[in-house]
């Protein structure tokens, strides 16, 4: 493999009910999707806590995408509202500490939005490719 070319590693935490289904739909509709994504299926976007996200970053992920049902459409009624607050909170901490908050992203993608899923993933992958590798990845001081 060409060492000089940066191939980002991106982790997507997808809600089981909406975005994971959207990813399925995108796949079965043969939509072209960035191959840099490792998908982790969670039962709800609110399942994701800060330590899970930080562990992912500290283990070398270049970017993290959280995706779930649109506000008002949560399978568990209101999980995504909590997820949104938590996301805003961590983003704020990363922003204050100047820790490249743009590596963390949240998006609402419903089960029928296969095309939107592909767009979100491709766009985010492009952004991370431009950002370059996560500085934590190669550093041994953490």
């Amino acid at each position: 493999m060409d060492e000089t070319k940066f191939t980002p590693k991106i982790v997507g935490f997808l809600c089981n009910w909406c975005t994971y289904a959207a990813a399925d739909l995108a796949g079965s509709s043969k939509t072209e999707i960035s191959p840099l994504f490792s998908v982790i299926r969670v039962m709800c976007s609110s399942r994701i806590d800060h330590n899970l996200l930080l562990t992912t970053f500290f283990n070398g992920a270049d970017g993290i995408l959280i995706a779930g049902c649109h506000p008002g459409d949560c399978h568990y009624d209101k999980g995504n509202y909590y997820a949104r607050r938590r996301y805003a909170l961590l983003k704020n901490v990363m922003d204050t500490l100047k820790l490249e908050p743009e590596r963390l992203e949240l998006s609402w993608v419903s089960a029928s939005e296969g095309k939107r899923y592909a767009d979100v993933v491709n766009e985010f992958s492009k952004k991370i490719e431009q950002l370059g590798p996560n500085p934590i990845k190669k550093s041994s001081v953490f």
Partner: peptide, 25 residues
């Protein structure tokens, strides 16, 4: 394998950022 060296004890920065996100508000 990834880094060639490791800080010990590990995760001290992780602990601080984690705590900041968890209760700083």
């Amino acid at each position: 394998e990834q880094k060639g060296a490791l800080r010990l004890p590990p995760d001290t920065v992780f602990f601080q950022i984690g705590r900041l996100a968890h209760m700083s508000f």
